[in-house]
Design a protein around this nucleic acid. Structure first.
Lengths: 226, 226
DNA sequence: CGTAAGATTGAATGGCCTCAAGGACAGTGG
DNA sequence: CCACTGTCCTTGAGGCCATTCAATCTTACG
């Protein structure tokens, strides 16, 4: 999951899960379950498979020698992760909310082994990934802390929010540290910004990880404040 | 071109131009020349082709409504740009140093129309792109101005530097504004940082766009200062 | 109740930005 | 040949936002 620049961008690149009836492939492909905290793959591991998330949440990270960490993306239902470059994975992939994933053999993307339909779906997902990452560049480089956090909550609301009348309820699987490393901020700044949104009456917290969006328009405004 | 985290990363993902003898495809494919300032495509244009740079420099940009601009990448010889998402291009592509590009029909990537060899090369380039962009995230989110500029110059030195004894000469095609929008900085900060590197004796300027790397190790140290 | 992990809040610093002015350079026309 | 102009780059001063360092609060769990 990337925090793209606008809802328009999100709409323009619909996720696979909404493109194609889910049962058309899930029943024919091996599905694996992972518990929270499990590791799907590590940087340097042989990239044997590509993973399509059906439920739950994954986290992709890269770490530098000096300890600086970047969360590359969160993978939510409908997302596909683990695109190889060469023979190896180049990120870590951990489960932060117990999940079910559909496994695709790497060759299904690279050689077209298996059905042409699957090959095409994986290829399209890779191209969509490039586009989404380009949007995310703008996010990391050009947005303020408030805009980043508001954008993040907006996307999460769209992707995993449950409607409660005119409000939306978000159950975050990730910790503040994950959000911070995803948005290029510190834990403290994320926390302070969430407090700020709360004090503005835009959101309210049931618990630290359970957020209600009270004012979707206010959140959208905050996400692209001049 | 992305500014990746280390030279190791660059080495690990060699560019197409060094992988495959150039004449094996360039002679069989239509080549187009563009003058500096030309526009290759605009966001929203129909994505009919994918472009492989043989010489010169391209610039990929995205612009927000509010005027904020992000340079997504610079395309140098060996790079491939214009990966579509859906039917349209989602960035602007301008020529900042007169260039020759090899055109590939979009279908060569998406359908495998044309040679399987070309299909595979384009697919591998797309996957390499994803990996390089992931590295670039760390750059944008976690590096200081000094580290960013030093990293940028290191990559440019590796890619387009000409050896002068133990020194390296870089002829930058891009303006300060392009560098700033690529690194997520302001023009002033880029300029100040270059001055700082000059005062440290790490680089020297022949002219604003013509830079000599006097101390490659010093530059490398600056690019990953703790 | 005690401990540990995570989240929040506070105070102070600093790095980058903003605003502003001046310098370098090429192109143009008198 | 030389002002004139526009573009780009550099430099300075001041301010703000995010960080850093540190303490407190919350929650879960034995």
């Amino acid at each position: 999951m990337y925090v793209t620049l606008s809802n328009a961008a999100t709409d323009a690149y619909p996720r696979a899960a909404t493109d194609i009836p889910r049962q058309s492939f899930s029943s024919a492909r091996p599905v694996r379950r992972f518990a929270t905290g499990a590791c799907v793959f590590r940087e340097g591991d042989d990239a044997s498979h590509i993973y399509e998330v059906q439920s739950g949440t994954l986290r992709l990270t890269r770490v530098l020698e000096n300890g600086r960490r970047q969360v590359i993306a969160f993978a939510l239902p409908g997302d596909i992760v683990g695109f190889p470059n060469g023979d190896q994975h180049h990120t870590d992939c951990d489960v932060i909310g117990s999940c079910e994933v559909v496994l695709h053999r790497r060759e299904a993307l690279e050689n077209g082994e298996g059905s042409p339909e699957t090959h095409r779906r994986l290829l399209m997902a890779a191209l969509r990934e490039i586009s989404a990452m380009q949007d995310h560049f703008m996010m990391l480089a050009r947005k303020s802390a408030l805009e980043k956090v508001a954008s993040f909550l907006l996307v999460m609301s769209d992707r995993i929010g449950t409607r409660q009348g005119d409000k939306s309820m978000i159950e975050l699987q990730m910790k503040r540290a994950d959000i911070a490393d995803f948005l290029g901020l510190t834990i403290e700044t994320v926390s302070r910004t969430i407090t700020q949104l709360r004090n503005s009456g835009i959101i309210s917290l049931v618990s630290a990880n359970s957020i209600i969006v009270l004012d979707a328009k206010g959140l959208a405004d905050a996400s692209e404040a001049a």
